[in-house]
Amino acid sequence: MEALFATVTGFLAASGLYLALRGRTFPVVVGLTLLSYAVNLFLFSTGGLTTNGAAVIRDGVDYYADPLPQALVLTAIVIGFAMTAFSVILAMRVRGDLGSDQVNDQRGEESKEDKS
């Protein structure tokens, strides 16, 4: 199970990174979102993979899922949403003001290389 979980995290991270390296804004935003899923899964798994653990304290129960990574990831999900929102709207603004959805500075000479 651990190997499978790690594989999923790895695939999501790889797909996210590939998208983040694209030259247009929308794939980059999607890639960042995907990457944040991978990061959340990774963070979550730092507490171990608990099957059928109790999430809420009950008398007589002593098998709990680790709550700390959960608390961390919960806020990370919300912040991740804020980041996705901010970057996608930045992308819209760039399109509105510069008329382009490329991620590279069009004025620089390097961008020619990246357009190739």
């Binding site: 651990e2 594989t7 790889a14 797909s15 730092t46 700390l68």
Partner: peptide, 24 residues
């Protein structure tokens, strides 16, 4: 991307298979 994914997966696997020391 493949290299990155591979490293993330290896790291995750290495972490998951090692004893957990938590402050929870």
């Amino acid at each position: 991307a493949a290299g990155f994914g591979g490293i993330v997966a290896s790291l995750n696997y290495a972490m998951l298979t090692r004893p957990l020391d938590t402050i929870s």
